[in-house]
Design a protein around this nucleic acid. Structure first.
Lengths: 177, 177
DNA sequence: ATTCACATGTAAATCGTTACATGATTAC
DNA sequence: GTAATCATGTAACGATTTACATGTGAAT
């Protein structure tokens, strides 16, 4: 149940229309919580119905017309409560690891190329994160919100670093065959 | 579309009934691809219909009766093809990182306790993986399938290590406030 | 006027989760 | 024979994904 909270966070950072949100879910917040525009529109409808957000008044509302939303106090309260809620980490669920396990049974044909491809993709993602880090968190010191956002970005960086390290190990292991 | 392939892999490792599979998806394969018994039964039905697996002959088939499945050649071929298939890594989707980002907007109340709880959970998971490593991959050298399975386990270990490191950093950062 | 990009939305299929129902087997 | 457990399965719902439909506004 994280999508509504992702949307509340995004709207608190900046009131937006559905499509703007969809675009921000392709970068920024989307780096650790992706969503399509359909998910977003549906969820906006639900959040509005529950009175956690509202559409900003428009002179002439119509379908196909831009609609901007903002968070109501009840929405901020819900998000505040969610931050402190207990929620266990989910099990890892990774198709690549599964494929490696399958390869142990049916052979590794074609796997090496996939690992190399993934390695390259993770290298690119890491470079992108590091660009963002330089751009947004270059100079110290920062206030608390910025330090928290930096920590989140750091998690992305660390995660990509883990993948690059593991894929390198795995490729070395495969080639020793 | 990984669940059918997870099941094919599990069945190739050892022909099993639905419930046995469900149990193995709580450990072993389940460490990186979890599934409930309902998902498994539904998928077993589909795989049987597509003639990728078959139920082993039983003297008196009946509902509520144990039914063991094995992989047919077509199933093995499908799995072999899947190992080499191009499939991009999925975007990270992590509620905890999202909560951290939300905390940058609405405050960190209650977050520290959650981070500590997660840290403890990841430490436990790491210990479990390391037990498995000692038990199953203690002595070298190993054949190729075992080296591949070891690499998969290593990914789990590295991933937990990443989390422990990041959570430690994050807690230190939070407390500097 | 027509076209194109913007913006919102509907529909359908699959996946994932939770609750529940039912038959078979075993232990007592 | 009754209860407990094993095993398979149905049903319902929400989340996710993909494809498509519709209306608006700006450019030519």
């Amino acid at each position: 149940m994280s999508l509504p909270h992702a949307i509340l966070t995004a709207l608190l950072e900046k009131p937006s229309s559905g499509l703007e949100l969809a675009r921000r879910f392709d970068r920024s917040i989307g780096y650790f919580w992706s969503a399509t525009h359909q998910q977003i529109y549906r969820e906006l409808g639900r959040l509005e119905e529950k009175a956690l957000i509202r559409a900003l008044p428009s002179d002439r509302p119509a379908q196909g017309k831009r609609k901007e939303y903002e968070v109501l106090p009840a929405g901020r309260a819900e998000l505040t409560a969610w931050v402190a809620r207990r929620e266990d980490p989910k099990q890892i669920r990774d198709p690549l690891l599964l494929r490696m396990r399958a390869a142990a049974v049916v052979g590794t044909a074609g796997l090496e190329a996939e690992l190399e491809r993934h390695l390259e993709l993770h290298r690119r993602q890491l470079a992108e994160y590091e660009d963002i880090e330089r751009r947004d968190f270059g100079e110290e010191p920062a206030d608390e919100p910025d330090r928290l956002r930096h920590l989140v970005l750091q998690a992305g960086i660390d995660q990509e670093t883990f993948w690059i390290g593991w894929l390198t190990k795995a490729l070395a292991g495969l080639r020793t065959t």
